[in-house]
Design a protein around this nucleic acid. Structure first.
Lengths: 231, 231
DNA sequence: GTAAAAAAATGGTATATACAATATTTCATA
DNA sequence: TATGAAATATTGTATATACCATTTTTTTAC
């Protein structure tokens, strides 16, 4: 009986490792489930392995003090989680929290290390993956520093649509709390509320509870410009 | 006659590749020099290879429009440059400009690819290196989003001291233009000027032209706190 | 099914910080 | 060594946006 390691065709691990290694992955992997709102791993916690998101959506976030957080990125099906912990210091620099019920594949440190040692094509692809992640992080860094708030909120909406796509009614597939949009755009809830109200009034977006539908993407994109003249 | 590939003991390339590969590196590498203020490579330019900083200091920055820039990081002797371009898209997402006269070792794409394929220990170390870079980028992302301006400026000073160290008189080894400090902290020149004046008055720092000496590191660190309650 | 807690909605105010203007000094280059 | 161009110094003002307070609605937990 053939059992596929996972059903995600573009799962990084399964698609990049040697065919004979896949069987070993099948034995070594653990499938984990988390409910909406549950923390998958927490900033400051010990790195025990690496995660591959099988289904559901996740926010990756970084804390400051008690009440402040910045959402670093949103993750979708097929994404890798916890790879930031693979540096020298085995402590997670960020937290990962489920935005919906999620299912993930967990590979422990020892087996992940062995996988990298035995699958050079995978390790090589991993280097490229990290390079792209770094590019994205630095692009977001620039956006947070140089773009004005409304532009960052507009960007957040477009980003969410890009990552998760839309459902049959045109709404962004994953409903996200306004507070999370704020935490992604680096602003506060009230500012998000005010700008979304303005966009709704202008018929650029439409909302239904937490769900958001982008009506006029072009007009939304026009909001993405900086005013701050840094440097 | 033995010729060492480079004199930097902790050069990533030389210290991590196979001994027999080092000789090949010696043949394939090119030594490049750039004058202060010269651009080593530019955002949007084609990725031709990877650089290892032999001497001098460099700013890695990202543009927005014509007049706006954010300095992503400062680089010192021994650092890798251009590794962000190693993703799928062979276009530099950032620029690198010399802050002082620099000397660097250049490895072209083809040989770098071959090096990764033939030196698994190096590739493995590279994964760790990228993971740490990603952590730092995301930490900075959070700081830019959550910290107030003066805190970011204070952080910039401490960062510069950390990276480049101080000279015999206690000044940060590399004098950086106020505008560059602003571009690193994600603010404008005037704001940097005002805060540095305040710090000088309070005898927390001392300045001599572009050179800055941190007198009271503890008091400076006290400025690193957020007021913004994001999320 | 109800209580408690969190999120959302809304408007008003304070302030941090970008923007503007101008003078002076330093630096690059011919 | 002259000369234009950056960079720096300095003060003042405008405004974007965080902060505050209150009500209503939705979600979570027992």
């Amino acid at each position: 009986m053939q059992v596929s390691s996972c059903n995600i065709s573009d799962c990084f691990l399964c698609s990049s490792c040697l065919p004979e290694w896949k069987a070993l992955v099948e034995v070594k992997k653990t499938t984990l489930r988390f409910k909406k709102g549950a923390q998958i791993f927490g900033e400051g916690g010990k790195v025990t392995g690496i995660y591959f998101l099988y289904s559901g959506s996740v926010k990756v976030h970084k804390e400051w003090g008690e009440q402040k957080e910045l959402i670093i990125r949103f993750a979708k099906k097929g994404d890798i989680l916890g790879h930031r912990g693979m540096g020298s210091d085995p402590i997670y620099p960020i937290s990962a929290t489920a935005l919906e019920d999620v299912k993930l594949c967990f590979i422990d440190n020892a087996f992940w290390e062995a996988t990298m040692k035995s699958n050079h094509a995978l390790t090589h692809k991993l280097v490229q993956f990290y390079a792209v992640e770094l590019q994205q992080a630095e692009k977001r860094m620039r956006n947070l520093a140089l773009m004005e708030v409304n532009a960052r909120i507009a960007d957040a909406l477009l980003e969410m649509k890009e990552i998760w796509g839309v459902n049959s009614e045109g709404y962004i597939s994953v409903p996200v709390a306004r507070r999370d949009i704020a935490a992604y755009a680096g602003t506060i809830y009230e500012t998000v509320f005010k700008f979304l109200s303005e966009l709704t009034q202008k018929k650029i977006i439409a909302t239904s509870g937490k769900s958001i539908r982008i009506i006029d993407e072009e007009k939304l994109k026009q909001h993405i410009k900086t005013k701050k003249s840094i440097g």
